[in-house]
Structure formats: structure tokens, C-alpha cells
């Protein structure tokens, strides 16, 4: 059964995927380390601490130090995962990541829960709406957000096995499980969920399931949709975007500011190719507030009906 035909009933947070996968990876490779900054429980590394204490470090509430310490570990051959919230992992330790991780191109992974608007009731201070854009501008950095539990596990595994700095972003809240356990993913290669002729939708992270629901509705109305899960926004899969240019109408969907994230990355390619039109759906360059996650998504126009509406407008 294709993904589009499935009813997505099971839900899981992708931070759980990180917590589960990192234990497996840590057991396989004693060089895998986790560095916590006092939020191990909510970043789901508690099992790692229990099972692999010799590969764990908790520096307390000191994110900048965590990033630098990870760089030091990496110089000795370790593969450290710094585990924190996206807002701190991208901003509080931004310069340390730039100077001590990306500049010397060390093998450090920044693994962040609470991506996008998913820490909804925590309010605007905790919602990371600009993190992927910040990290995307550092040379040597790879930037990833999986769309569900299983894809995130695969992407965490691949991040551990590739050399170099990687930023991984997870959801705090549960989101539908989209893929089968055995589905394969490649960092830097978009997952083609469906081919189509009328419109191309490129989504990532917690918006992919919304794009799937929108695709189902559009197909019912006779609109043929090509759908991509662009889990890696850097390096962006240029080839996959170019393949959308024959359709010429592209919609990007992301739980991130429409500036500097997936939408911007796609626009860069489309503009350089000189053909095609892009509509960006995402956070409308505004801070969030304490509210239910769905309400915040609605306030920014990141809903199934917004995707459908945008598609129809582009087809007029």
C-alpha cells in the first residue's frame, strides 16, 4: 500500500526516535557519546544514561560549554551527540558550533528536541522557529528534520555513521507515523512519496503528514500532486527540486520561519534555474505564544486546508 492510501493512526514524537536509536547506536559503538544539559528526561536520553553511563556526560545548564566539550571529545575520535532543545542548540551555542565544530569540521552532532512550534504551551521563548536557518548558514553543517518516528531513527543512524557536523531536529509532541519500519532514507536525498503532474508539494518534519492529507484531498478533486519529504535541507537535494520544475508550481511546507528554512532553500534552487513559481507555507516571520500546537499552526497558515487552498490558487 502506498503511503497516500494509508490511514495514519499511530502517533509518536520524533524525540522518542532519537532516544531509542541513540541507545542502539551507543551499544554498537563505544565512541558514541551523549552530552546532556540537564534536560535528559525531556530529550529522551534517560535510557542511554542508564545503559551506557560511561558514554554519557551531563554538564548541567551550560550549553556553550557542552558544544565546546563535544568538540574536544571529537578530536579524540569520539562521536558526541549534544542533546538539548532546538532553541538552545541553534542559538545559545551557535558561536561555539561555528567556531569549535564547523570551522574545524569536527564530528559532532547537535540533536535537538522541541523543534518548531512543537513546544507550544511553553510559549514563544521555547519555540525554535529560526534554528534550521541559523545552522544552514554554517559551512560544513548538515541540517535534518525527519518526518516521523521511523524516518528519524534512520536519519539519526546515518548521521552517526557519516563524518562531520550534523544538526538534527525533533518534535516534542507526537506526530503520525508515516513510514514503515524498513523504509530507507539517505541524508541529502529527498524521499519521493508520490509522483504527480499538476503541483509539487515539498514538506519536511512535522508538516509532511499535513501535506499527505492535503494531497489525498487534492487527488480526490482530480488534482495530481507530486509530494516530496525534504528531510535534509542542507545539503538540499537540488536534483529532486529540478525534477519539479516541469510542473513549475511548487509549494513548500515547514514548521519553521518562511525565512531561511526549507522554503528559502527551495527558492534558491528555483531562482537559479530560472523557471517555476514557489509558494511558501510556514511560520510567518512572527514569534509564537503559549497556545495549543494546532492553534499556532493555524495562526501561521500551516494546515491541511491552507495547503489545499494554496494549491488551488496556484492552479488558477
Amino acid at each position: 500500500m502506498s503511503i497516500i492510501e494509508k490511514t495514519l493512526t499511530t502517533k509518536k514524537a520524533t524525540r522518542e526516535a532519537f532516544g531509542d536509536e541513540i541507545v542502539k547506536l551507543g551499544k554498537e559503538n563505544k565512541d558514541i557519546y551523549v552530552i546532556d544539559v540537564d534536560i535528559a528526561k525531556s530529550c529522551k536520553t534517560s535510557n542511554f544514561i542508564k545503559q551506557l553511563p560511561e558514554q554519557h556526560i551531563n554538564v548541567g545548564i551550560a550549553e556553550q560549554n557542552a558544544a565546546g566539550l563535544a568538540a574536544g571529545l571529537a578530536t579524540t575520535g569520539k562521536i558526541p551527540f549534544v542533546s538539548t532543545y532546538a532553541v538552545f542548540g541553534s542559538l545559545r551555542m551557535a558561536e561555539q558550533i561555528r567556531q569549535e565544530v564547523c570551522y574545524p569540521n569536527l564530528n559532532v552532532k547537535i540533536a535537538c528536541s522541541h523543534g518548531g512550534l512543537t513546544p507550544a504551551n511553553d510559549g514563544g521563548s521555547h519555540q525554535a522557529i529560526e534554528d534550521m536557518g541559523v545552522l544552514r548558514s554554517f559551512p560544513n553543517m548538515t541540517v535534518i528534520m525527519g518526518a516521523d518516528y521511523f524516518s528519524t531513527r534512520k536519519l539519526v543512524e546515518q548521521a552517526a555513521k557519516m563524518y562531520g557536523p550534523v544538526y538534527l531536529r525533533f518534535t516534542r509532541d507526537t506526530i503520525p507515523v508515516i513510514y514503515d519500519e524498513n523504509e530507507e532514507f539517505t541524508i541529502g536525498k529527498a524521499k519521493k512519496i508520490k509522483e504527480g503532474q499538476d503541483i509539487a508539494i515539498i514538506a519536511n518534519g512535522d508538516t509532511v503528514h499535513l501535506a499527505i492529507e492535503a494531497t489525498k484531498e487534492l487527488e480526490k478533486e482530480g488534482i495530481s500532486v507530486k509530494l516530496l519529504d525534504m528531510h535534509t535541507i542542507k545539503p538540499i537535494d537540488r536534483e529532486a527540486i529540478v525534477e519539479c520544475l516541469d510542473i513549475g508550481r511548487l509549494i513548500t511546507v515547514e514548521d519553521h520561519n518562511i525565512l531561511n528554512g526549507l522554503g528559502s532553500a527551495v527558492c534558491e534552487v528555483v531562482a537559479e534555474e530560472g523557471k517555476g513559481k514557489v509558494s511558501r507555507i510556514g511560520v510567518q516571520d512572527q514569534f509564537g505564544q503559549s497556545a495549543p500546537y494546532e492553534k499556532l499552526m493555524e495562526l501561521n497558515g500551516i494546515t491541511v486546508s491552507d495547503i489545499i487552498k494554496t494549491a488551488k490558487e496556484m492552479l488558477q
Binding site: Q64, N65, A66, A67, G68, L69, A70, A71, G72, L73, A74, T75, T76, P80, E95, Q96, Q99, E100, Y103, P104
Partner: peptide, 16 residues
Amino acid sequence: ISTGSLGQGLSCGVGM
């Protein structure tokens, strides 16, 4: 280790 931004090197030393 590459350095140059003050305050950061000691953390790297701690990691080593």
C-alpha cells in the same frame, strides 16, 4: 584545536 573566539577553548580541553 582551532581557537580564536575567547572563552571557548577551555571547554574543548575539558572534553579532551
